[in-house]
Each structure stands twice: as C-alpha cells, then as structure tokens.
C-alpha cells in the first residue's frame, strides 16, 4: 500500500474508537434481531390467533424502533472523526424497546 496522507493520518484515531463503537451497535442490533425472531416464533406457536398476531406485530415494531436508533447512531459515527456523544434520548429509546420486548415476552408466557 502507498504512504498515508499526513493530514489524514492525524485526523484518524489510531484506536479506531468510532469504528469499534459502530461495530458494537451492529452487534447489538444483531442481538435484538435474535430476540425479536424468538419472540415472533413464540407468538405464532400453535397457529395464528388474533392476540398472537398483535403481539407479533408489536415485536416487529419494537425491533424496527431499535433498528432506527442504531442506524441513526451508526450514520452519526461514520460522518465525522470526532463524533458527538450519544444523546440520552436515543439511549433511552433503545432501552425502552428492549424493556417492551421483555414485557411482550411476559405477556406470552402468562
């Protein structure tokens, strides 16, 4: 490979912190996908009932909400070398999606 542009090398964080954070968001999205797939499978066990379909749609919506937050953050991280701090609103949204998924699970168990 050729030599790296000096200005570019200075701007680039040698610890690759934004990249690592981006990948952490990807991993978390993957984990939420697994949980959502399990919840959908759980909701549709024993045939499609009305309540099962409703819970299933709710789980899909929660997964989409998580995906949106992650996508937003990943784009912000990719946009600049010194990205802004994660907004508490986004952190809370991601957590509330997770909590709501667990509540759907509790409703399915009971």
């Amino acid at each position: 490979m050729g030599r790296v542009n000096a200005a570019e090398a200075e701007e680039r964080d040698p610890g690759l912190q934004p990249e690592r954070t981006r990948l952490a968001w990807r991993r978390t999205t993957l984990a939420s996908t697994v949980a959502a797939v399990l919840s959908v499978k759980s909701a549709l066990r024993g045939g499609p009932t009305v309540s099962g379909v409703i819970v299933c749609a709710l789980c899909c919506a929660l997964w989409l909400g998580f995906l949106l937050v992650a996508h937003h953050r990943i784009r912000a991280l990719a946009a600049s070398a010194g990205p802004p701090t994660l907004a508490p609103r986004h952190a809370t949204t991601a957590v509330l999606c997770t909590v709501a998924l667990a509540l759907c699970g509790a409703a399915l168990v009971l």
Partner: peptide
C-alpha cells in the same frame, strides 16, 4: 460501548426467557 455491551446482555437474557 460498555452501555451497548450491557444492552446485549439484557437482550440475551430476554432471548433466554423466550
């Protein structure tokens, strides 16, 4: 990243519940 790691732990526990 630490926050996300805890969130993954939470998601894994929820997946375990399902």
């Amino acid at each position: 990243r630490t926050f996300l790691a805890w969130l993954r732990t939470a998601l894994a526990l929820i997946g375990g519940g399902f």
